[in-house]
Simulated scan of single mutants.
Amino acid sequence: MLMHNPPHPGEVLRELCLEPLGISVTAAAEALGVSRKTLSAVLNGKAGISPEMAIRLSIAFDTSAESWLNQQSQYELWHAEQHRKELNVKRLVAA
Score class of each variant (00 low, 15 high):
residue 80 A to N: 09
residue 66 E to L: 07
residue 54 A to D: 03
residue 39 L to Y: 07
residue 78 W to A: 10
residue 54 A to Q: 00
residue 53 M to S: 05
residue 85 K to D: 06
residue 49 I to H: 05
residue 64 S to V: 04
residue 40 S to N: 12
residue 45 G to P: 06
residue 54 A to T: 01
residue 53 M to A: 02
residue 83 H to N: 10
residue 60 A to K: 15
residue 55 I to P: 00
residue 60 A to R: 15
residue 55 I to H: 01
residue 88 N to M: 13
residue 69 L to E: 08
residue 55 I to W: 08
residue 89 V to D: 05
residue 56 R to M: 07
residue 37 K to N: 10
residue 43 L to D: 03
residue 79 H to N: 11
residue 44 N to Q: 14
residue 67 S to F: 07
residue 78 W to D: 05
residue 54 A to S: 02
residue 61 F to W: 10
residue 81 E to C: 13
residue 41 A to S: 14
residue 53 M to C: 03
residue 81 E to A: 10
residue 84 R to C: 09
residue 64 S to A: 02
residue 50 S to E: 03
residue 66 E to H: 08
residue 68 W to D: 02
residue 43 L to Q: 06
residue 81 E to Y: 14
residue 76 E to T: 12
residue 81 E to I: 10
residue 52 E to S: 11
residue 60 A to C: 11
residue 55 I to R: 08
residue 68 W to C: 02
residue 83 H to G: 00
residue 36 R to D: 03
residue 86 E to K: 07
residue 76 E to I: 12
residue 82 Q to G: 02
residue 59 I to S: 09
residue 71 Q to N: 05
residue 47 A to L: 12
residue 80 A to D: 04
residue 70 N to H: 10
residue 55 I to L: 11
residue 62 D to Q: 12
residue 77 L to A: 07
residue 69 L to D: 01
residue 63 T to F: 06
residue 42 V to G: 01
residue 59 I to H: 14
residue 72 Q to V: 03
residue 45 G to W: 11
residue 80 A to F: 14
residue 78 W to T: 06
residue 56 R to H: 09
